[in-house]
Amino acid sequence: MKAQEAKSPLLAKSIVSRIFSIREMGTIIPLIILYIVIAFVNPNFFAPANLIDVVRATSYTFILAAPLTCLMLTGNRDLSVGATTALGGVACAWGLTSLHWGIIPSILLGLFAGLVVGLIKCFIVLNLKLPPFIITLGLQYIINGFVLVTTLGNPITGFPKAFTNLGQGRVFGVFYTIIFALVLGIAIHLMLRYTRLGREIYATGGNKETARLAGINTTKVLMIVHVAASVFAALVGILYASRFNAAQSNAGAGTEMTIMAAIIIGGTSFAGGSGTVIGSLFGCLLLASINNGLVLMHVSSYWQNLVFGAILVISLLLDKIRTDKSGGGL
């Protein structure tokens, strides 16, 4: 309408401000800065083998982050995914080694463990209407405890070659997991953008009661995202077991926080209703790059904790600035 009245300096300003207002910019700019810093400090980062390492690490977190993004889009959070990762790996390993099941049934067993966790979580969060933050925290402890009790904290090893091939094998030099992560990312991206379910997820996260009054089955939507998050968490655990030829009771421990930080840095709002999977991909890439960069720069692991804590705080700050701008306060 009155946009045409803008004079040329304003127009230039609006292009710059438009670039800055792209949600994913929150991760792309730090990513670029990080790469420049690393390039000066330790150019080894850009060695092909190391880059593959970074992408490979990204693929694991992203397989979990993509479905978790959908969950966060509905305005929910899940602190039990890290523990579910360990559970999935252990359940699958148990099938392979103790039950002497085939590979596919064992994988299904691992996924089934994730499904059970997802359904229990749904039941508590949706029916008992308790706050998801606390409930999933409790669930995290329960699952952790369960895994420790059953494995006595020992890793389970000794898998058939065909199984370890999942996490270690490649086609044309590219790891299977990277391809899988890419396909999954594209599928979820298309789902969010072009399908009815995608629309329902955004609507539920934007304003649940409005969505319900418009005839959207918000309970169904929440169930889908909760269950998906748990099942994919279990899948990541299975892939870790395959990659390291060992199912560990602490696989994925503590990752839920960093992954959620990656998602929020990637532009998904804490309150729900806005964000993209592409943003989460950049978030995961940023996380893996920092991780790798710190190791290359011989920074002690104590510092890594500090850096990740800072990232978590910054991501929430970013989110607050974004929601304040969108008039969320009023």
């Binding site: 072009y194 399908t195 009815r196 379910l197 995608g198 629309r199 329902e200 955004y202 609507a203 934007g206 304003n207 409005t210 969505a211 418009a214 005839g215 959207i216 709002s269 209703g273 806005s274 969108s326 008039g327 969320g328």
Partner: peptide, 24 residues
């Protein structure tokens, strides 16, 4: 729904009519 667009807000009560089995 404040964070969604006019288009998305107008269509949410008619998703059945405005989508096929899966796709919008």
């Amino acid at each position: 729904i404040g964070v969604l667009s006019i288009r998305e807000n107008m269509s949410i009560a008619s998703l059945k009519k405005l989508s096929g089995l899966i796709l919008m």
